[in-house]
């Protein structure tokens, strides 16, 4: 058998492997019907060049965060506000340009992102949660630098804050990121809602952020902290925030 024939056979074998996998993946990708607004959202995704920066299922430009499960992390309201005015978010970090999206297009993109997060074939991806911003496990109690003599509960609360809250809330007086600064929160929280103590107010704001939105801020805080944080994490976070009274601000 001459070399050319062997090459052709090997090439065909390689291509056969590709085709078999592509056909199986195509069947998987087309097994469930795709709602019309999701397809429309994907068209907007393509025409606006979102994929040039972002990734879905790890596919795309890699210049901006993966959005496969962003709807669970941020919620639709936050994403809607972000798409309308991205410059107001993540100051001093990579900026998204402002796209001239219609309300319908924003809704279609939200429908797409909702669909990507729950699609059957995406059950195993990503293998670990991907965060847009925040400290992540670097700030977990196991690896975070504990302050000597600090109560372990406060250390844990500081870690949770770094991981889940710091990208939107500052603890510096007057420094407003996406949400209000939490400097002085321990005292302010006493007066926010009649009948709610400071700790109850903070707990309620973590679990039900839409209940008492601070004046001047949009209701864009993600709504799934009850799923993301254990009760001990929330207790630790409240203990950590209760350190910040008016004196600290």
């Amino acid at each position: 058998m001459n070399g050319r024939l062997i090459f052709v056979i090997v090439l065909l074998l390689g291509l056969a492997a590709v085709v078999v996998n592509v056909v199986a993946a195509w069947q998987n990708a087309t097994a469930d019907p795709v709602p019309e607004d999701v397809s429309a959202g994907f068209a907007v995704w393509g025409t606006q060049g979102c994929e040039g920066c972002h990734t879905l299922y790890g596919q795309g430009g890699g210049y901006a965060p993966d959005l496969t499960r962003i709807i669970h992390q941020r919620g639709a309201d936050y994403l809607r506000a972000f798409m309308v005015n991205p410059g107001a978010f993540h100051p001093n970090q990579r900026q998204m340009p402002r796209f001239t999206l219609t309300e319908t297009e924003v809704d279609q993109l939200i429908a797409l992102l909702d669909w990507t997060s729950s699609a059957r074939f995406a059950a195993d991806w990503p293998p670990r949660p991907l965060q847009v911003a925040g400290g992540g496990a670097l700030f977990n109690t196991s690896v975070a630098q504990a302050v000597p003599g600090e109560d372990p509960v406060l250390t844990r609360g500081r870690a949770v804050f770094g991981q889940r809250c710091a990208s939107c809330h500052s603890i510096e007086p007057g420094v407003v990121l996406t949400g209000p600064s939490l400097a002085g929160i321990a005292d302010r929280a006493w007066h926010r809602v009649i009948g709610l103590g400071a700790q109850e107010y903070i707990r309620n704001s973590i679990l039900h952020p839409s209940d008492y939105v601070v004046e001047g801020f949009a209701d864009v805080m993600q709504k799934n902290f009850a799923d993301l944080l254990s009760s001990s994490d929330i207790d630790a976070l409240i203990a950590y925030l209760m350190q910040f009274g008016e004196a600290s601000s």
């Binding site: 901006a64 965060p65 993966d66 993540h90 970090q93 990579r94 990503p126 293998p127 670990r128 949660p129 991907l130 965060q131 847009v132 911003a133 925040g134 400290g135 992540g136 496990a137 670097l138 690896v143 990208s167």
Partner: peptide
């Protein structure tokens, strides 16, 4: 940093 330690994308960048 991002995938194993789950630090945020923007902070990793």
């Amino acid at each position: 940093v991002e995938r194993v330690l789950t630090v945020g994308f923007l902070d990793t960048q």
